[in-house]
Design a binder for these strands. Structure first.
Lengths: 237, 237
DNA sequence: AACAAGGTGTCACAATCCTGTCACATATCG
DNA sequence: CGATATGTGACAGGATTGTGACACCTTGTT
């Protein structure tokens, strides 16, 4: 659907790098590369990738040092550390300096992929604030992905949840159609603008917001849509 | 300042034991010891340590057996298994019997410490899960790993228990197929997503949730599955 | 006030994707 | 061996979704 997350690989073994890159690219990730600790560190800070894959053994600043520095600067993305068997000693420090996972070399590329995905998912989940929304007698829990209308369960599709997610994240601020398309459908897909309207229409209908004047999901003429603030029940904790 | 976590070591090599003990004590852990599988098992159940370190090679009950027994009783703390070099090939088996991590001997004491810490951290993160589930006339005890349907005992396979475990741990929240694969099948095995559906299908059938509308195990279209909240009877204590 | 021009709401429909179901081949266990 | 458990592919029925057509609304202009 969308461009995948961006992954920075810091490794000096060109061959391995190539393999990893192919592997990730094929799955739709965007790959950034660096071959020394220093460049990796700089690139991480500048490009803010969603995940960093760090080889422990690097010329100059080694992986552990890079990781420690990233953490010291409160770099938010997860770090996956690659260690070779001979580097046992480093592996230790790897876990202690804030790497979120590590993988001993040589590894199966599928396992590598599985861990990458898992780390990104976890990240995603942590970021996602669990919002509760209320539309009259309809309640929506964005975290559990469940909804009710009065006493009855209400079935929303994943696109509808994604839409609400986006609108809720922006509070009462209006969100343009373009933003919506980018966020829900991704940059690589180009549906008609009609598509957004249709989904808004369906949402409103399910939520009972189909009176004369939509109360909960409001349009900003020539601009986009926004959630009326009264719908946000609880940004938790 | 509180006492550190309690770690039970089960090993018959006195020398190694001594080293480990010093090592842990210096870091503020409280150390319990046992030199045979039987005593280790008993002590684990009685003292309920926060972590168990198990040598595979033990007189009498060996490490794998102890671990299996602990898991059968749904012992909650993580288990770190110590294996000698020759047993490396078996380490996968070790993991399959319920050990949370393993460490080949001889090991660097710093790596040992790192893994201990990592396990305890992970433990801390894991939320308390609910142990008793009810699906109409079917009851499932995740702790005892037993189930009944009406008056009859109901046999669930270990995969099915693992599935329920995961779903229950996530409360009413939806769990994606990928999460399910990672958690139940692990990073090193790669079944089709079809596999998940089939197991859900079998579970539903056994639990009697195969009416028109599945009531207990619900699908979130395009997303995954979740347990309806009414199935959770009571988190203990 | 009337009009033009583009933005929106509404909806039916076909294409596509997702899930339930099951038979069958393997794997595992005793 | 037999019995049970597990993974896979095929398939049908359902659910979801993008699209176009058309009516209606807004806005700004004569």
């Amino acid at each position: 659907m969308s461009f995948g997350p961006r992954v920075l690989i810091v490794d000096d073994e060109v061959h391995l790098m190539k393999i990893i890159k192919t592997c990730l690219t094929r799955e739709g990730y965007r790959v950034l590369q660096a071959t020394t600790g220093e460049r990796g560190l700089r690139m991480a800070l500048e490009e803010k990738p969603d995940l960093v894959v760090l080889d422990v053994m690097l010329p100059g600043l080694d992986g552990v040092a890079v990781c420690a520095e990233l953490r010291r600067l409160h770099f938010p993305a997860p770090v996956l550390m690659l260690t070779s068997k001979a580097e046992v000693e480093h592996r230790i420090r790897g876990l202690n300096t804030g790497a979120d996972d590590y993988l001993p070399k040589p590894f199966d590329h599928r396992e590598f992929l599985a861990r990458v995905k898992a780390l990104l998912r976890r990240q995603q989940r942590d970021e996602k604030k669990s919002f509760l929304l209320r539309f009259g007698d309809a309640h929506v829990d964005l975290e559990k992905r469940s909804a009710t209308r009065g006493a009855n369960p209400l079935k929303l599709t994943k696109t509808e949840f994604a839409l609400l997610d986006l609108l809720a994240k922006n509070g009462g601020k209006s969100v343009s159609r373009e933003q919506i398309l980018d966020s829900v459908w991704g940059y690589t897909y180009f549906p008609t603008t009609r598509t957004v309207d249709t989904h808004i229409y369906r949402l409103r209908k399910k939520l009972g917001d189909d009176g004369e004047q939509p109360k909960w999901i409001q349009k900003i003429q020539g601009e986009g849509y926004c959630l009326s603030e009264s719908t946000v029940v609880q940004p938790p904790e």
